[in-house]
Simulated assay, not measured.
Amino acid sequence: MECGFFNTCRAVIVFIWAALTLLIVHVASATNISIHVAASEIERQALLNSGWWKDRIPHNTSDHCGWVGITCDYEGRITDIGLAESKIKGELGRLNFSCFPNLQYLDLSNNNLSGSILSQIGSLSNLKYLDLDRNNLSGTIPKEIRSLRNLKVLDLSNNNLNGTIPKEIGSLRNLEVLDLSSNNLNDTIPKEIGSLRNLKELDLSSNNLNGTIPKEIGSLRNLEGLDLSSNKLNGVLPQEIGNLKSLIGLFVRNNTLGGPIPSTLFRLTNLEVLYLGFNQFNGTIPREIGHLKNLTYLFIKVNKLTGAIPSTLGQLTSLLQLDLSSNQLHSSIPLEIGSLSALEELDLSDNKIHGIIPDELTKLS
C-alpha cells in the first residue's frame, strides 16, 4: 500500500511539474509575441509619422513590411529602408531613428530632405549601410555617429553640412567607404581617420578643409581611391602616401600643396589615375615616374615644376591623357613621348620648352 501511495504522489508531482512547465513556456511565448507585436507597431507608427509613405502604401495592405522600400526579417522587424530617388521632402528628423533598432540598411539618397542629422542616429547600432547623398541637409555631423560600429558604407556627400569632421569617426573600424564630399566642412582632416584600416574609398573633396594632410593617412593600406581635391589643404604630400600600395586613383588637385613630389609616390605601381594639378608643387618631375606603368591619366598641370620632361614618361604605355601644362618645364620634348601609342590627349603648353617638335610625335595616331 505504501508503495502505491508514493507512486501515486510521484505521478501527481510529475504531472503538476509538466503542467507548470507548459504554462511557463506558453506565457513566455505569448509575452515574446506581445513584445514583437508592440515593437512592430512602434516601427509602423514611426513610418506613418514621417509622412513619407502617405502615397506609397499598396491598397489593402496594413502590414508595413509590404510597403514600398521596406524589408523585414522573419519576425517582422524592419531591417532595410530604401527610398532613394523617391521625391520625398521635409525634415530628415521626421523619421524617428530610435524606433528601428534592427535597421541594417538606410538609403534616402537623391531626395529633397532638409534639416540636420540628429544625435538619435547613434541608436542605429546595427546599421551597415547609410546613404544620405544628394539632399539639402545642413548642420554638423553628430559625434554620436561613433556608435555605428557595424557601418561599412557612410555617404553624406552633396549636402550643406558644415563644421568639422568629428574625430569620433575613427571609431567606425568596419568602414569600407567614407564619402563626405561636396559639403561645407572645415578645419583639418582628423588624424583618427588613420584608424579606419578597412577603408577602400575615401572622398573628402569639394569642402573647405585646411591644414596639412595627416601622415596617419598612410595607415590605410587597403585604400583604392583617395580624393582630397578642391579644398584649402597646404603643406606637402606626406611621404607616408607611399604606403598605400592598393591605391588606384589619387586626386589632390586644386589645393595649395607644395614642395617636391615625394619619391615614395612612385612605389604605388597600381595607380591608374594621378591628379596633382592646380597646386604649388616645385622641383623636377622625378625619373621614377616611369615606374607607374598602369597609369592611364596623368595631370600635373598648373604647378611650379622645373627641369626637363623626363624621358621615362615613354614607359607609361597605357597613358590616355598626359597634361603637364602651365609649369616651368624647359629643354626639348623627349623622343620617347612617341612611344605612347594609346595617347589621346597631350598638353605641354605654357612651359619653356624649346627645340624642334620630334618626328616621333607623328606616331601618336
Rank of each mutant, 00 (worst) to 15 (best):
L137C: 06
N174E: 15
L148S: 12
L178E: 05
L202C: 01
I193L: 11
T31R: 10
C65A: 09
N96T: 13
D107C: 05
Y129H: 13
H330V: 12
R149H: 15
F251T: 12
G218C: 02
D73Q: 03
K167Y: 15
I88V: 09
S246K: 13
E43Q: 14
F6C: 11
G258V: 05
E344N: 13
G194S: 06
C99E: 13
T61W: 07
Q45S: 14
N183G: 01
L335F: 11
D73E: 07
D359K: 13
L346D: 04
H354M: 10
L172P: 12
S171I: 10
I35P: 00
L124A: 14
N126A: 14
K89F: 06
R56I: 04
E43C: 09
I285H: 01
D133Y: 08
L335E: 10
L320D: 07
N243I: 15
L196T: 11
L127I: 13
K54G: 07
L113D: 07
I337C: 04
K200S: 05
L340R: 04
T79C: 11
I189E: 01
S311N: 05
I35Q: 08
P310K: 00
N112P: 02
S50Y: 01
N159Y: 06
Q280C: 12
L172I: 12
E43A: 09
G355P: 03
S50G: 10
E240W: 02
N222G: 14
D359Y: 14
I141Q: 00
K128Q: 15
I261M: 01
T164L: 06
L202S: 08
L92C: 11
L271V: 07
R134F: 13
L22E: 03
L226Y: 07
L204V: 04
S147V: 10
E144I: 10
T61A: 14
E288D: 14
T212Y: 03
C3N: 15
T306D: 12
N162F: 05
D227H: 02
I57D: 08
I33Q: 15
R149N: 14
A38F: 11
G69S: 07
K232T: 06
A39S: 13
G290Q: 02
N279Q: 07
S325G: 06
D203V: 03
S339Y: 02
S29N: 09
L154Q: 08
R134L: 12
Q45C: 13
L172G: 12
G170Q: 06
L130E: 07
